[in-house]
Design a protein around this nucleic acid. Structure first.
Length: 430
RNA sequence: UCCGGCGUAGCUCAGCUGGCAGAGCGGGUGGCUGUUAACCACCAUGUCGUAGGUUCGAGUCCUACCGCCGGAGCCA
């Protein structure tokens, strides 16, 4: 008997097939059992009628429990009464393993309970939909980079020093030396950009900050493109194109999953280029008009970002922040010494910063001054300074946080649902 | 680190002004030939986060601690 996947079930109408999966839910009515079977690609209803199967098979159905693994055989038929439009008329069932007392019932649970059972929760429809969208986002990012001529050059996870200071890093013992889990692959991407022209790295990133908000994880994934002979304007154009590409791919390929999440896709469909671009200084003026008392020179807080993004129906690029609130490697704006040639992209609907980047300081002596200003040790950055000694060029790049993008596309309240096994201040299990 | 909220059945929660520990769901048993988070009847569920204190009496009031959730700062 041929093995069918639930997602392809319409191709097997009126054929006898076998489905290997798990019992998602079950209802019974007299001499009928309705089994909701999931196989990872979807859910299909299998109907067991007492008169159609051997007594032993019908009796076995009565013993079934949620998430028992089983192989069902039967005939696929179109059936409007079935929740999925198709169902299987069962002729035989083989129980692979009987699962007793599955903890996650089809009723409501709190986030704490579900996260403690994350290894099982992945089987439920909501996480299933979110993680398939995440998978699509990741693939879209890689496809975009490939199509645009970028080379994947991944950065190390163990690093000898911080990109932006050591306070937020996880320290590990590295054969007696101190090492840190990476906070960004950017410095390494810069080295790679001067070798390959256009590169990106895509990997996990670690922050030891004790942030307890819906936008933070201690371990998250970031894609970081870096381009040689590139200025801030071109950097922003690439960032905009990447985000637009990802949105379109998710809308095109994951509409069923967005439907499961009841995401209003109208807002996503409107998010097409060009995205609005405003300077930090314009943003401050706008915030003042909206009643904020933020001072010029201060970094934008979460509330400020929410106010700003509410002004637009698509992501907004905020560029040229004050230099003092940005990292040491940001290039100074030649037309205004107070500013850095940097950019943040803020997602709509209060999802905050999804991209941060800018043009890098390419002058050796200025960069040395910046290291001193930021009180950073010189020695761990010698290799980085070499990049300015040997064929330095204007270059730029950015980092995009995958979880925040997925949270926005899915319309989620918290980023922890966008990663299979979230790591937060209070969660290292499972 | 700071501020706020919450810890009661397997889960989600109610429990008033201190007076016998509750509901729904889930589980078990039985019923139903089209269920849609099925429905109907019956059954069993407990270290009220922990440790002290006040009181004749504490789930309830007080103190400390622990855990979780959210926010701030910082960031993607």
């Amino acid at each position: 008997m041929q093995r069918a996947r639930v997602s392809q079930i319409s191709a097997y109408e009126n054929e006898a097939v076998e489905i290997r999966g798990w019992l998602y839910n079950m209802r019974s009515s007299g001499k009928l059992h309705f089994l909701q079977i999931r196989d990872g690609t979807g859910i299909i209803q299998a109907v067991v009628f007492e008169n159609d199967v051997p007594a032993k098979v019908y009796a076995a159905c009565g013993e079934l429990s949620q998430e028992s693994s089983l192989i069902v055989r039967g005939t696929v038929r179109r059936e409007p009464r079935s929740p999925q439009g198709y169902e299987m008329g069962v002729t035989d069932i083989e129980v692979v393993q009987h699962a007793a007392d599955y903890p996650i019932t089809p009723k409501e649970h709190g986030v704490g309970f579900l996260m403690a059972h994350r290894h099982l929760w992945l089987r439920s429809s909501r996480p299933h939909a979110i993680l398939r969208i995440r998978s699509e986002v990741v693939k879209a990012c890689r496809d975009f980079m490939d199509e645009q001529g970028f080379t994947l050059i991944d950065a190390p996870i163990f690093t000898p020093a911080a990109c932006e200071g050591t306070s937020t890093l996880f320290e590990v013992d590295y054969f007696g030396d101190k090492a840190y889990l990476t906070q960004s692959g950017q410095l390494y991407s810069e080295a790679a950009a001067l070798a390959f022209g256009k590169v990106y790295c895509f990997g996990p990133t670690f922050r030891a900050e004790k942030s307890k908000t819906r936008r933070h994880l201690t371990e998250f994934w970031m894609i970081e493109p870096e381009m040689a002979y590139c200025d801030l304007a071109e950097d922003m154009t690439v960032a905009e194109a990447l985000v637009a590409y990802v949105i379109k791919r998710v809308l095109d390929n994951r509409s069923a999953e967005l439907e499961v999440l009841q995401r209003d896709t109208g807002l996503l469909q409107k998010a097409t280029p060009p995205f609005p671009r405003i300077s930090y200084t314009e943003a401050i003026e706008l915030l003042h008009e909206r009643g904020s008392d933020i001072q010029w020179g201060a970094d934008l807080g979460g509330d400020d970002e929410t106010i700003l993004s509410a002004e637009f129906d698509r992501p907004v690029l905020v560029h040229r922040y004050p230099r003092q609130v940005k990292a040491f490697y940001m290039k100074t704006d030649p037309s205004d010494e107070r500013l850095a040639l940097c950019v943040d992209m803020l997602a709509p609907e209060g999802y905050g910063e999804i991209i941060g980047g800018g043009q890098r300081e390419d002058d050796l002596h200025v960069l040395e001054e910046r290291l001193t200003e930021h009180a950073l040790p010189r020695e761990p950055f010698e290799w980085y300074l070499d990049l300015r000694r040997y064929g330095s060029v204007p270059h730029a790049g950015f980092g995009m946080g995958i979880e925040r993008v997925v949270a926005w596309l899915c319309g989620l309240h918290h980023v922890r649902e966008t990663i299979p096994f979230p790591r937060t201040l209070s969660r290292l299990y499972p």
